[in-house]
Simulated assay, not measured.
Amino acid sequence: MKIIIKTFKELSLTQLYDILQLRSEVFVVEQNCVYQDIDGKDQKAMHIMGYKDDVLVAYTRCFDKGFYFEEASIGRVIVKENYRKYGYGHEILKASIKAIEERYKTKKIKLSAQQYLIDFYKSHDFKTTGEGYLEDGIPHIAMVKE
């Protein structure tokens, strides 16, 4: 998988379209969740894209500390359904952690995890914090990596 990291202003129209299409495909259609994906925050995010044969198969968006949470954060963690068995989720998360450490100069990272993925995030040294909650009708829990 080829990893590409860009700010919002650096994204091509095709890359932006690919991102929005993938997020809609998984979060809205597959998970049957009606929510406002285009939330005005993409402009402040660092976009981590994973391509396989010119297809966007994995993605995250990352924020510096103080924007989304007090800590730096990773969100919209996603892998295209037909590509989930190849470890691309682990690759995109590792790339996101590394990008945050290098660009934002911090190792403390917070994310809002869908609860069924707790073990996935734990395998990357994230720890649950606080109680679970519903976000857009889906059970989530805050997780932090120190």
Rank of each mutant, 00 (worst) to 15 (best):
Y59T: 10
L93M: 14
T60W: 03
T60K: 06
L134S: 11
Y88F: 15
K108Q: 13
E101K: 13
K98V: 09
H90G: 12
Q31F: 11
G89L: 07
S73V: 04
Y51L: 02
L117A: 11
F126I: 02
Y51R: 01
E71S: 11
L117K: 09
V79S: 10
H140C: 08
H124C: 12
Y133C: 00
M49T: 03
L111M: 13
T14S: 14
E102A: 10
E10C: 02
K65P: 08
Y104H: 07
K44L: 14
K122D: 07
K94H: 08
T60S: 14
G89P: 14
I38R: 10
E25Q: 13
I78W: 03
Y88A: 05
V77T: 13
L20R: 04
Y51C: 05
I19N: 10
S12M: 04
V26W: 08
Q31G: 10
Y88S: 06
F67E: 09
H140Y: 06
Y17S: 13
Y51I: 02
I4G: 07
H90K: 13
K127Q: 12
C33A: 00
S12V: 09
G50S: 06
L117R: 01
I74H: 06
D136F: 02
C62E: 07
R103K: 13
K122G: 05
M46E: 08
I92S: 00
